[in-house]
């Protein structure tokens, strides 16, 4: 068994927010007791809707946020506190890319300068060689010298995301956290970037924490996935298993909501209601107000994680000790 590059154990993060202008401060649990592990060279996908805590989990993994409780282990050692020299050294091995490349790039700096900037900051190698290194990295993501001299506004969306990738990868990180990296791109360009990401992962032995709401892309890139709802993981296991035979009713609804080209006659599970407000988390299982198979206990008791024989874990009362497939009828 390969070693875990990243381990989150029991992490929680809450923020406090005011209800109304003079209202009481109430804690919002963005991430609640999340444990995940990512194996070296593999891809773990974090899936969920807005407010599910998937982006916060990604930021905690990089040490950009401190968890209120729980531990983050990178290659077996705990992350040093943010903004310390030790953290900065470790951060060089962990990079992040975001959904909107234009917002992530400096609009007034040519692509080449932005790509070499991390080398300057971390003082890597002789200054005279940094431009060549940056150009080589840009070449590896499919951008030429002409692109290197351009400003972000002169590039297309796909090219900008390539530039963001080059900048993140120039430090030769071993872990890349991708927060919705292809969601803003057109279909034909999305395929280019997904392929590029997978090629780079293979060539550079990257481990990816892939945050996305797009299950089609998740199926393409990840070996394992975790489905989050209101800050908690509801189902976690091999992507192949979860997508072909999901057990948690929320995972089932998410999968059924994926619009597939050329398919019309399918019965879709339409969840009623809205994703609830993290500041007003329902008691018991957070999903119970929208759950098609909720029982009385679901409203009071938060379900514990059960590990099924196929290795996945799931938090649902309806699954406890029962054969899941008959139980979760729709």
């Amino acid at each position: 068994m390969t070693a875990n590059i990243l381990e989150l154990s029991g992490i929680s993060r809450s923020y406090s927010t005011r209800q109304g202008l003079f209202g009481k401060r109430v804690p919002v649990r963005a991430v609640d007791d999340v444990s995940l592990s990512l194996q070296e060279g593999q891809t773990l996908a974090l899936v969920g809707e807005s407010g599910s805590g998937k982006s916060t989990t990604g930021r905690i993994a990089l040490g950009l946020e401190r968890p209120n409780s729980g531990h983050v282990l990178f290659r077996g050692s705990e992350l040093p506190p943010a903004d310390t020299p030790a953290w900065r050294r470790m951060r060089a091995q962990m990079q992040m890319i975001y959904q909107d490349p234009l917002a992530a790039l400096d609009r007034r700096l040519p692509i080449l300068d932005q790509t070499r900037e991390p080398l300057d900051i971390h003082d890597v190698g002789p200054a005279s060689e940094r431009n060549d290194k940056a150009l080589a990295m840009l070449d590896a993501v499919g951008l030429n010298a002409g692109h290197a001299a351009s400003l972000p506004s002169q590039l297309s969306g796909g090219q900008r995301q390539r530039a963001v990738l080059a900048r993140a990868l120039i430090m030769k990180p071993s872990l890349l956290v991708c927060d919705e990296p292809v969601s803003a791109l057109d279909v034909s360009i999305q395929a280019q970037v997904v392929n590029l990401l997978m090629d780079l992962q293979r060539d550079l032995q990257l481990s990816l924490l892939f945050i996305s709401h797009d299950l089609k892309v998740v199926r393409q890139v990840s070996q394992r996935m975790a489905v989050m709802y209101l800050g908690r993981i509801v189902e976690y296991g091999e992507t192949r298993l979860l997508l072909s035979n999901s057990v948690h009713p929320y995972t089932r609804a998410l999968i059924s909501a994926v619009p597939v080209a050329g398919r019309r006659t399918r019965e879709r599970i339409i969840l009623t209601g809205e994703p609830p407000n993290p500041a007003a988390r329902p008691a018991g299982c957070a999903f119970h107000p929208r759950c098609p198979i909720a029982r009385s206990e679901c409203a009071n008791v938060s379900p514990a994680f059960t590990t099924l024989p196929d290795g996945r874990s799931v938090a649902c009362h309806a699954v406890d000790g029962h054969p899941p497939i008959e139980e979760v009828g729709v």
Binding site: E49, A257, P259, I270
Partner: peptide, 11 residues
């Protein structure tokens, strides 16, 4: 919109 809400609106 989120995936489950998208399904609601299309429906």
């Amino acid at each position: 919109l989120d995936a489950t809400i998208q399904a609601q609106i299309l429906d």
